[in-house]
Design a binder for these strands. Sequence first.
DNA 1: GTGATAATGTACTGGTGAGTCCAATGACCA
DNA 2: TGGTCATTGGACTCACCAGTACATTATCAC
Lengths: 197, 197
Amino acid sequence: MGTTLTAKGAATRQRIIQGAATLIQDQGISSTSLDDIAARTQTGKSQLFHYFPEGKTALLVAVAEFEAASILADQQPYLSNLTSWDAWQDWRNRVVERYEAQGRQCRLGVLTTQLGPASAASEKIAADLQAEWERLLLEGIQGMQQSGHIRPSVDAAAAAAALIAGIYGGVLILLASGSAYHLASALDVGIASLRGH
Amino acid sequence: MGTTLTAKGAATRQRIIQGAATLIQDQGISSTSLDDIAARTQTGKSQLFHYFPEGKTALLVAVAEFEAASILADQQPYLSNLTSWDAWQDWRNRVVERYEAQGRQCRLGVLTTQLGPASAASEKIAADLQAEWERLLLEGIQGMQQSGHIRPSVDAAAAAAALIAGIYGGVLILLASGSAYHLASALDVGIASLRGH
DNA sequence: GTGATAATGTACTGGTGAGTCCAATGACCA
DNA sequence: TGGTCATTGGACTCACCAGTACATTATCAC
């Protein structure tokens, strides 16, 4: 990375990150070598270390950032507008559809099981993502309480935590089984419990 | 393993499995080499290959089996006797206590995120465990429906799947954060939803 | 006890993968 | 146009690790 970065350099760097992300999704982090990434992105090891002087760990952190950024973006604008039961249902459908489509290559699964454990920095990225996601759900629940859709006696923080746990577990099972049934069930039960059914 | 196994040999084999399990819990599968396992278990590489002629993969499968067996056993007798709300609460408390105590070294987390992805055989062990666990929960829910504690309109399969997803996600978050709050919340919300609160 | 076989110790091999070195090429700016 | 620095290519080193070969010691059956 020297000091500055030309347009061409920035493009190469981005190509490396995305190529690495794809390889990790396809074959797992432990089977993805720097040589693989170089071959996939039409670069060489010298470029990899040129753009990521701290080596593989730094590259993986960049990949984790890239994945994390897209996970919340994928759920917008629904996730930030959970102001009616229809909106909750729309968000739920978006999540299930997205993860059903991604299947075993889903970004959240890769982030939590492959990239997260790889380094402390990546673990923090995964933790920050989870915290932000949970915060948005909590906001949605509290807003629904203020508008009278959800009873005040509901523990909003616990409900948000339970939803997040259900999503993460559903995705974990999706990774192993390829089925989004558990994810969908967790969301349905969680939302039904908010509605007081 | 040759053909037979003396008492001494069986003990050594078991020591290898447990030592490997501990190392993987402590430092992750990718940082655990056969040399590490040999050193830890006061053996040598020749023993490792003597008892696991198919090599590291077979050893890891044995570790996965060992971990999986203890996960359900840890929840007994509660898990097989979910016949009253008190029993459900006892089971919930047992799970939360156990995982809080295990913290980041929890067996289920290791099995799903470290061992499971390592080979198809280990993945099957993890999948079988999940299926069995879910079956026991389903039995509990259906029994409670028959005894009139849970309304017949509740989708028992979906409720069991949601509980499993919450547990798996709670454990995943426990691995990253060290906190069992999400696990506890998921169980509380899931059980409350069964009770119709 | 003795022979067969299980259990263990040690030294080695071959491959792989992260990271380095240095030379060459290309782009931008004075 | 010439110089500087970013960019790229390719060969190389070094460490680690799974797996092997072979020799030695302990154990069990008869």
